[in-house]
Simulated assay, not measured.
Amino acid sequence: MLALNPEVPKDPEKVDRIMKSATHIFAENGYLQAKTADIAKAASVSKGIVFRYFGDKGHLYLATVEYVIEHLTSIADFSVWRDANDLGDMIERAVRYKIELQLQYPDEFTLSVRSFGELGSLPEEIQGEIAELWRNQTTMGMLELEQPVIDRMPIRDDVDRGTLQRLLSAVADQVFGDAQQFMQQHPKAKIEDFEPIIRQIQDEYRILEHGFLK
């Protein structure tokens, strides 16, 4: 989203300070209550610089969510997922690891969770971009992390890998929908509050792995 105003020169140090202060203030107050003036003050820049770099508060929020996703992705240890024995084990490992990360990066996780629940209150011009951003992150991430686990599993010879991936994609889409609905109802939820959804995912994977016939 830094490409929003590509013709405007941007000081990398100022951008970094703005992103860090925006992450904290959006996480603490939510989109509607967060004030651009407070973000600028915390970043030691003028309010004009914030608008010059990002255009408006909505696009600043979008850029901040993108920043958070990139940051969490850069520090995540994906072997926690990829080294799992099966899909159920992978989900359990992932939840525990995310709780650990949440304790280390509370603002980043709070904002990532809030960005689900706040979709309806965001400006219309960025609602679709935020939703698509998280949908792509969820779907692509799950498939990439699941694939090494699937490759180690004794899949039947008559199972088409493309069909299996489409089934897993459908589950990923459902995860996104369930998480979004949950966050709309519980905007201050923490990662561990997703445990019922995680158990549901585990049940769905168990059925995919073992079938549903006696």
Rank of each mutant, 00 (worst) to 15 (best):
M90P: 04
G48W: 09
I130T: 01
Q33K: 15
G211H: 02
P148L: 15
A172W: 09
K10G: 02
I25K: 05
R135D: 07
M140H: 12
K41L: 04
Q102W: 01
Q180A: 09
P187Y: 03
D158G: 03
A22M: 07
Q181P: 05
S46Q: 07
M90E: 03
K41R: 15
A131P: 04
L122D: 14
G55V: 04
N136T: 12
R206L: 04
A172R: 06
S112Y: 12
S121L: 13
I75R: 09
A94D: 03
Q127E: 08
H71C: 02
G88H: 02
E66H: 13
I197C: 01
R161L: 14
N5W: 09
A189W: 00
K10R: 10
T110S: 06
T139Q: 14
L32F: 11
S79H: 14
V68R: 03
T23D: 02
A22W: 03
M183G: 00
D89P: 05
D89Y: 03
Q184V: 13
L2H: 03
A170H: 05
D173Y: 02
R156I: 08
G30R: 08
V149D: 01
D203Q: 15
D193V: 13
Q180G: 04
K41S: 05
S46D: 11
H210V: 11
E204C: 05
K47T: 15
T138W: 03
F78W: 15
L60C: 10
I198C: 01
A189Q: 09
D157R: 10
E195G: 11
Q200V: 00
Q202K: 13
D38C: 01
K188V: 08
Y31E: 05
I91Y: 03
L4P: 00
P123I: 07
R135E: 14
K214Q: 07
G48F: 03
I126S: 02
V95E: 15
E146Y: 02
R161C: 08
R93M: 05
K14Y: 11
D203Y: 15
E70I: 12
K20W: 14
D151Y: 11
G88A: 08
L103Y: 13
T139V: 14
L143G: 08
R82C: 12
G120W: 14
E100W: 00
E28Y: 02
A3F: 01
L62D: 04
A27F: 04
T163E: 15
H24R: 15
I198Q: 00
F54T: 12
V159C: 11
L101S: 01
E66Y: 14
K47L: 07
L143E: 07
I25Y: 12
E28S: 13
V50G: 11
H71E: 05
I201K: 12
I201Q: 02
G88V: 13
L111A: 14
A40E: 00
